[in-house]
């Protein structure tokens, strides 16, 4: 029951404290990683990656690194490259991601013996 009588100054009135809802912090976690902008995009872009092999090691490496850097910049723009890599690595230990990782590897395996 709130006291409504006008005691002049309004000191006795209860102050309502509203809990302000904060916008939850955006995280680079497993859901983001497995979303469309995550690994699927990386795989798509990797298809366009042309590495030259022997004799072009340095340019290959810088192209490879820039693939990852730009992909991470799109996926999670606020973190620096190395920080984002650490986050991805950490997310990689979650069960969901582990399962997905195994699947991605299985995609590349030759399907012979296991399919009867």
């Amino acid at each position: 029951a709130r006291r409504k009588e006008a005691s002049g100054l309004g000191i006795d009135e209860e102050v309502e404290v509203k809990k302000r809802a904060y916008v939850p912090r955006v995280k680079l976690d497993e859901t983001r990683l497995l979303s469309k902008a995550g690994i699927p995009t990386l795989k798509q872009r990797a298809k366009q990656l042309r590495l030259k092999g022997k004799g072009h090691e340095w340019s290959d490496a810088s192209r490879l690194l820039s693939l990852y850097q730009l992909w991470l910049d799109d996926l999670f723009p606020k973190a620096k490259f190395l920080d984002a890599l650490a986050m991805v690595e950490k997310a990689g230990h979650k069960t969901g991601v582990v399962k997905a990782r195994l699947e991605w590897i299985d995609e590349g395996k030759p399907k012979t013996a296991s399919m009867f």
Partner: peptide, 19 residues
């Protein structure tokens, strides 16, 4: 060089490189 070679042999490595 070895990494690039492996990437070509096994495309799955492109995701595994992260972890």
């Amino acid at each position: 060089r070895k990494c690039v070679k492996k990437l070509e042999e096994r495309p799955a490595l492109i995701t595994e490189l992260l972890f």
